[in-house]
Amino acid sequence: MGDRSDSAADAAIRADDRLMRAVAAGDDEAFGRVITAESPRLTRFVAAVLCDLGEAEEVVQEALVRLWRNADAWEPRARIGTWLHQVAYRLSIDRLRRRRPHVDIDDLDDVLEDDAPSPERQLSRIEDVRLVHEALDRMPDRQRAVIVLAHFQELGQAEASAVMGMSEHAYESLLARARRRLRGLLAGQRDEDGEDWT
């Protein structure tokens, strides 16, 4: 089983390498495929880190421009999406250092998809999303980012640790601490609301 997943990962990296060679040769259509494939997920990630959809779109655009400019130096060591997440994460952290983070729930709700079948369930989902965003806003930047990578970006541990620029062991440790902190913050919010959510 491990060999099969390794070979699938290698095949995906080779496919990305072919795509990046086309981008480096000036193929606008190939770059358009990269944008179409990577932008939505990357925007969700950056919006969750920065808590600002407008800024997230700027960061994603900057990351994509950097990919375009560096296409001729592409080395097939990871997926295109992993590289873009790494660049976008660093750009996001730079922006966070220049300002105090804040959550604008109204902007982020547009990013999340909700397939709720009934109005009651949708209202409950909206309240849950609001509580999670409030709790994420109260977390340190790195803990917030690791939660978003693990639970909202669907990146594997190897990719997510590469995005964060740390070993897989350090990533696991940070994720465990972040999950504990998020659970604690959510439990505190629920207690403050006077509701028993257990």
Results as ranks from 00 to 15, higher is better:
E57R: 12
V34S: 01
V34T: 02
R121E: 09
D196T: 08
V65E: 14
R41A: 15
R190P: 04
R44H: 06
L123M: 09
D72M: 05
D104T: 11
E127D: 13
E134G: 01
R33K: 13
E55K: 12
Q189W: 09
I105S: 10
A9V: 11
D115F: 10
I126K: 09
R177N: 14
D27I: 06
D115E: 14
E113V: 15
A8G: 04
T198Q: 13
P140F: 03
L112H: 12
M139H: 04
R125T: 15
A12S: 05
A47G: 06
R18N: 08
A8K: 07
D196Q: 03
D52Y: 04
R33V: 02
L19S: 01
G54I: 07
A15R: 02
R4N: 13
R41P: 03
T82I: 04
L96G: 10
V132M: 10
M164K: 07
R190I: 13
R90A: 09
A48V: 02
A160F: 01
V132I: 04
L131V: 08
R100K: 03
L91G: 04
P101V: 06
R181G: 08
A150K: 08
V49S: 02
G32A: 12
P40A: 02
E55T: 15
L136Q: 12
V60C: 02
Y89C: 07
D28T: 07
P119D: 11
R66G: 13
G2V: 08
A162C: 04
E58R: 07
V59F: 01
A160T: 00
D104H: 10
E159I: 01
D3I: 07
V65I: 15
E75T: 15
Q122A: 13
R181E: 10
E159K: 00
L19I: 13
G32F: 04
R121L: 15
L42A: 02
R177A: 12
D109R: 12
A24L: 03
G32H: 03
G156H: 06
L112A: 14
V111T: 10
V87W: 03
A176F: 11
E159D: 14
V60Q: 05
G194K: 05
R18G: 12
Q153R: 10
R33C: 09
A47H: 01
D110Q: 05
L175K: 11
R14L: 07
L155D: 02
S7A: 13
D191T: 14
